[in-house]
Amino acid sequence: MSVDSETVRRVAHLARIAVADDEVDSLGGELNAILAFVDQLREVDVRGVEPMTSVTPMAMKMRQDEVSDGGIADAIVQNAPAREDHFFLVPKVVE
């Protein structure tokens, strides 16, 4: 499988990364090199094999359903590039 320039643009948009027109070709070439490399996996017969979901077999740890943290709104917003009081500011999203 190989990606064309339209696919590069579509994937970049899905990944929310702006790509300039003059970058599309070289990016497509790099992605195709990686995809060509991973294509050798098709040789592997995986019939009847379960996909890995956890590398170390373990039961999910459970904890008490109780509040253990909170009241730290100042700390949560302290790194925000734009904020007002305890709110994150974003461009208008609802007309």
Binding site: M1, L27, L35, L41, V46, P51, M52
Partner: peptide, 27 residues
């Protein structure tokens, strides 16, 4: 580059062929 490869292999229509297949190889 890696975020875009990751987005591609997880995108609709490619998930089974790439991601699921790779997780089986990992097993």
């Amino acid at each position: 580059r890696r975020v875009m490869i990751g987005t591609y292999v997880l995108s609709a229509g490619y998930y089974d062929a790439y991601y699921l297949h790779a997780q089986k190889v990992r097993t």
